[in-house]
Design a protein around this nucleic acid. Sequence first.
RNA 1: GGUGGGAUGGCCGAGUGGCUAGGCUCAGCUCUGCAAAAGCUGCUACAGCGGUUCGAAUCCGCUUUCCACCUCCA
Length: 498
Amino acid sequence: MTNSLKIYNTLTRQKETFVPIQEGRVGLYVCGPTVYNDVHMGNCRTFLSFDVIYRYLIHLGYKVRYVRNITDAGHLTDDGDEGEDKISKKARIDQLEPMEIVHKYTMGFRDVMKQFNVLTPNIEPTATGHIVEQIEMTKQILQNGYAYEANGTIYCDVDKLNQLYDYGQLSGRKLDDLYTNTRELDGQSDKRGAFDFALWKKANPEHLQQWQSPWGMGFPGWHLECSAMSRKYLGERFDIHGGGMDLVPIHHTNEIAQSMACCKTTPANYWMHTNMLTVNGTKMSKSLNNAFLPHELFAGSHPLLEQAYSPMTVRFFFLQAHYSSTIDFSNEALQAAEKGYKRLMNAHKSLLQLTHSGNQTAGNNTEDKAVLQLLDECYERMNDDFNTPQTIAVLFELSSKINAYHNKQANLNDLSKDTFDRLITVFTSFITNVLGLLDETTTADNGITEGLMQLVLQMRTDARNRKDWLTSDIIRDRLNDLKITVKDGKDGTTWGVD
RNA sequence: GGUGGGAUGGCCGAGUGGCUAGGCUCAGCUCUGCAAAAGCUGCUACAGCGGUUCGAAUCCGCUUUCCACCUCCA
């Protein structure tokens, strides 16, 4: 089962069978957030996508080391040499220490990830915690002759590297074409080639974040941290490197350049890229002012939002599209997702309430086989490049069957005990472990709510037995006012929270 | 201008050269004291124009159109 996993590799532009470097183990690196501001929903989508990828790899039995960095230094705001550090710019504006900014937004990011039920990576390294490694890597690249110094800044020599390998392979472009078709940029005076990029930048005295280096006071370049940290924790060559699609042409292209220049190897075998979240067809981004913050979504407090949407509704909404497709945010789509999510979770709840007679012989072989087939399909769909929308479609088909068993519209004893047990195991683990969906209606109140509900529903049942429809309907209507749905079934009455 | 990716039924969103996506909405039926929930059924699409093929929404070409990247961005 595990060896049939296929992954779309940006590097080769095709789906490939996943073969880990070390059998049974996976090294996974994902580019994390720059903590100079709140993460918006577009950022979250990427981390949610890779969360499911991480979860499924674990589910398949792999021992995974998942590294996702926190960028707390570097990353210039401008493209020119006079650019300013994002972290220090924000610090100056807010009259705060850089470390204060970084701490605040790191905490905020972790809080949001927790709300979305995103698993914590095994390591969350920070750029400022790995200055030594970045200096070391810069030294090696200089020694290998693929970098040069100009006024205290170290640039990577892309032209020379391009003789070693195809620099533009990841983005599917030739360096020559890039030269002829790229707009002229200003302020590149120190660079020998237009696509050379800084490994280490000289810092001006007023620069808030700077460190001692062999080339004077400075700070690491835009892309070096990921190369240095992935190398440190996963090795010079590891299995999967991921991130948002917008990182392909510059950031990831230059990460490959750095690894080639330093270690003569491309860092990762499989490159996975998640697509963008759009709003009204346009990419969500901070600069366009169309970015929702997670808490605005949960509270419904953004002008474009008609209502609040829960974290699990949003998680489910994202998973209904493939990670490699754009997905458009709209109230209609989210409301549909909210209902679908509840339907799925209710089916799961119903499944856990079913009891099987224990008969090992299937009462209906066709039905038994159909269920087993659907359970296998869950794996087939996920093995096909983590196709969550198709997996969810299969889970909905199983939901219809579960609901029918639950409401005595179909006979549970059509299934053998083994099939029933497998249904519970697979359905539950896909909902809970693989897709990471939590039941938001569950409350930890020591069963008080459930006890009270049983009391109320018993009173209503008594009224119904007396044909006292007035009383029974008042109870039902009042519960509806509290957003509690009463469901009269053949085996009695159950309830659920809207 | 260059490069890449799209255009699917009322909405969202998968997918494959011939076989049901799925969810939401809507209509009908069953169940029900009535409803709700649930099950079943129906509405049935692949931007346009050519071409390849026994057969194409799926492959090729052209057209229209949208988006992303080429500047930090998940």
